[in-house]
Structures are given as structure tokens and as C-alpha cells.
Simulated assay, not measured.
Amino acid sequence: MGEDGARRPPGTWIRALVLHTTRGIPGGRDLRPQKILPGLGPARRTARATNQWWSSNGTCAGAHLLVDFDGTVACFADLVTEMTYHATSVNAHTIGIEIAQGPNAELWEGQLDAVVHLVDWLTARFDIQRQIPDLYRGSLARLREGGRDVVGVYGHRDQSAMRGEGDPGNEVFRRLGDVGYEPFDFGSGADRMAWRPRQRLLGVADDGVAGPMTCNAIRAFQRNHELPETGLADAATRAILERVDEPV
């Protein structure tokens, strides 16, 4: 791993994905709107250059994955056994995804489409519930303090007061919301309040944190209701859960 990561503690439950942009601006310190260009960006060796920089610049910074301008995905660390130094307090139990920005901090539509596909695959692979921050409210105490009760997909800006709005900006979360990711006010604990009654109906501990036992219970629930057994509470699963008034 070099200076940009370390081994994960054995048996770590990976509970969240953290989205980053390589420049973190605009929409941050310079307050300009985030610029999204049509199509895909140019094919560059951004991943190689970024990885070399992380490995030798002395800042102890890194990420697991990088989505380049043209939608290419590069993997820099083992997602299961290695953690990267991408978001301090939550490193041990998250996967970090960098989105490469152009020289003027621009992103491309096709690149963001690739990010959505990547996040879809990762949430399915790691049983991470598809939930996102509903709005940007600055860094959240729950995440600064370790984020062990926060499940889903959030931005570096939600974890650190040192990053601006553009890390990663609003557009990627808008796109995730468009494909069904459930928005919550993580700062107020709205996610945990929503999950407690769901967990009671599923017959698991109602701590409001949708972990592996909750995902397994969702699979059984989906099987009983002839839904795809994903373990993720998609809109169809939630709709049936809301109609159920007895524990399953």
C-alpha cells in the first residue's frame, strides 16, 4: 500500500462509499457552479499519474478507485482487505472513489454515468443500502466522529469541514437519486429513524443501522414476496414493507 493506505482490520464490515473529486472545486472555495460537459472526456493517463502522486507525495492520501474523464475505472487497492487514506475518520470501513476533474475542475456526463454504474455494482456487491444525503449541510458530526452508524453513499464534503461543496458536488447525488437511491438527512439521524420500524417488521434488532443481518432478512422478505433477492431495500421492497403490519 505504501504511504496511501494500510490493511483493514480482519472481518471489517464495509458499510459506505465515499465519493470525491480530485480538485474538490468549484462549488467549494471559489463558489462557482459545478461545470458538467456533454459526453465523455478525453482518454488520459490520469489514473497512473494520480496513483504515483499519492504513493510518493508525503501526504498519506489515496483512494481505492478512480473514474477517469472517459469513464475508465482504475483500482488502486484491494477493496476488501485494504483501506486507503481518503477520508480520515471513516477510512477503516469505507471504500473511497475519486472522480477525476479537468484543468478547470470540469466533469463529464458520461463520466458521471460510469460513477453511477460503479456505485450500483459496489452497493450490490457489499450489501450497502442505497441511501444518500438529501442535501448538503456541511460536514456532519456523525461522520467526523467515525460514521459507524452511517450506511450508504456520501461525499467527502459530508465527512470533513476541510472540503468544500464541490467534493464531489451535487450532480452525482442528483443522478443517484434519479435511479432510486433513498435520500435522508443523515445529520438528524433520519436514516436510523426510517430503518427502525423496517427492522422490526423484518424481525431483526431495531438499531436503525442496516447491517448484514438486516440485508439477510431483506433477502428472505424479498423471497417470500417474489421479488429479486438483492438484500437492498429498493422502492418495490419498501412499498411492501410499508403495507405489512405484522413481523415477517
Results as ranks from 00 to 15, higher is better:
M1V: 07
M1L: 01
E3K: 00
D4E: 04
G5V: 07
A6Q: 09
R8H: 08
P9N: 12
W13A: 13
V18D: 11
L19P: 07
H20S: 06
T21Q: 08
T21F: 02
T21V: 05
I25M: 14
I25A: 14
I25P: 10
G28T: 06
D30V: 15
D30H: 11
R32K: 15
L37C: 12
L40G: 06
L40E: 11
G41K: 02
A43V: 15
T46Y: 01
R48T: 12
R48P: 08
N51R: 08
W54P: 14
W54L: 09
S56P: 02
N57A: 09
G58A: 09
A63G: 10
L66F: 01
D68E: 13
D70H: 03
D70K: 00
G71M: 02
T72R: 07
T72G: 03
V73M: 05
A74N: 05
A74V: 03
L79K: 08
V80Q: 11
T81Y: 03
E82W: 01
M83S: 11
T84D: 10
H86S: 12
A87N: 12
T88L: 14
T88K: 07
S89N: 04
V90T: 10
N91H: 01
A92G: 10
H93R: 01
T94Q: 04
I95E: 03
G96S: 03
G96F: 01
E98P: 03
N104C: 10
L107P: 11
L107Y: 04
W108A: 10
Q111N: 10
Q111P: 15
D113I: 11
H117Y: 05
W121I: 10
W121T: 15
A124M: 02
F126G: 09
F126N: 09
I128W: 05
I132A: 03
P133K: 00
L135T: 14
L135M: 09
R137W: 01
R137P: 14
G138C: 05
G138F: 02
S139N: 10
R142T: 12
R142H: 08
L143I: 07
L143N: 04
E145H: 03
E145R: 04
R148V: 15
D149I: 05
V150A: 08
H156E: 15
Q159L: 09
S160C: 12
A161S: 13
M162K: 13
R163N: 15
G164S: 09
G166A: 05
G166C: 12
D167G: 06
G169A: 07
R174V: 13
R174A: 13
D178I: 02
D178T: 08
V179S: 01
G180I: 07
S188K: 08
R192S: 14
R192K: 13
R192H: 11
A194F: 13
R196F: 05
R196V: 14
R196N: 11
R200N: 11
R200E: 15
D207F: 01
D207P: 07
G211V: 02
G211I: 01
G211Q: 06
C215K: 02
N216L: 13
R219N: 07
A220N: 03
N224M: 03
N224A: 10
E226S: 05
T230F: 00
L232Q: 04
A236F: 00
A236Q: 11
R238W: 09
A239Y: 00
E242Q: 06
R243G: 09
P247W: 01
V248S: 14
